[in-house]
Design a protein around this nucleic acid. Structure first.
Lengths: 102, 102
DNA sequence: CACCTGCTTCGATAATTGTAGAAGTAGAGC
DNA sequence: GCTCTACTTCTACAATTATCGAAGCAGGTG
């Protein structure tokens, strides 16, 4: 019970940084095929080491998956995880009274 | 453009802590009337000062609104902000190619 | 008008997170 | 097998965030 909450908090925390949120959106917009680290760097403009740290955080949180192909690294969104996360926020909305909210 | 991203990152960051996520869900489940700080404390079990700090963070991020009535403080969810936030994550999904994801 | 309740604000300390240069690695090409 | 590209990992320092006791404050109540 708490485990699920902690996991979702970790995911939200991973998204709770301007650079990582920009990365996630860019990768989401790029679709299931994935986007290379280089393309992401071209978008967010920062040292590779810093970018890599942020990408690792997103992968660890389960928001992105990564796959290496030749010497490129592709990052793809985990749509299922993202959907579960957004749904979680609305779960049991107003069950303790009230209405007309969701 | 970046302002909106920064704002949403701030909101996600506010939700990215187990205690605050638990608070938000509890308040969301409590409906539009709001939930008192005392009721929230009964749920999350922690010193009042720490709780108050977390509540302030959620209000500052615009996820909750607060209202004082007698000597109780009511916290209510900002459903509009929450909806905009969850929608934002999916905005322009796959517009750079790919399909079958959203 | 003391004084109690229900919370917030202050202040200090501990813990986590962000940043980026330098060094390391895996694969492609000559 | 050297070298270049495309990243990642290491390391260290800076900045932010979390926690909670103590003090403060705005209503109510006797």
């Amino acid at each position: 019970m708490t485990a699920k909450l902690d996991r979702h908090a970790e995911q939200l925390s991973a998204l709770g940084h301007p650079v990582r949120l920009a990365i996630l959106r860019f990768v989401v917009q790029g679709g299931p095929e994935g986007t290379t680290a280089g393309d992401i760097q071209g978008r967010v403009k920062m040292p590779a080491s810093t970018l890599s740290h942020h990408l690792k955080r997103l992968v660890d949180a389960g928001m992105l998956t990564s796959r290496g192909e030749a010497n490129y690294h592709y990052y793809a969104p985990d749509f299922r995880a993202l959907r579960m996360l957004t749904d979680y926020l609305w779960e049991d909305c107003c069950k303790r009274g009230g209405e007309g909210c969701c």
